[in-house]
Amino acid sequence: MSTQTAIPTPRSPYARRKTTRGNFELYSWVFMRASGVLLVVLVFGHLFVNLMVGDGVHAIDFAFVGGKWASPFWQTWDLLMLWLAMIHGTNGVRTIINDYAERDATRGVLKVLLYLAFTITVVLGTLVIFTFDPCPSDAPAELLASFCTA
């Protein structure tokens, strides 16, 4: 009885070991660039309208937000910006955690916290955009947008 070690056939073709992790990192890399380009437009537009036009930051109050979100255009703009910025930012911080947190446990805890913050912020922000009432009936009229009383 002889113990034999299996020696591969000399001419067997080289086979690259299949990765078991899918292409997630490739898609995340593409997403960062694609969403980044869109975010430049969305965020610059947001900053221009809220900080440069009219009275800038001094003009921002409940009535200002009510006036903006009465329009589906700004609702869509802000929703898109919220989702893209949150995924872009969360993915960026995920990369940084992977780079600097060396212990498995530390990485795990930081990522759980990150994904928790992501979920809470995106759900809350989305709900606010869609359930916002620009003219709450119990609020003083002088705090509301002009179209509430018109």
Partner: peptide
């Protein structure tokens, strides 16, 4: 951004 979504969410609390 996290803080900014939270402060904006206050529009659902009250104008004040």
């Amino acid at each position: 951004l996290l803080v900014h979504v939270l402060d904006t969410a206050l529009v659902r609390v009250s104008p004040e």
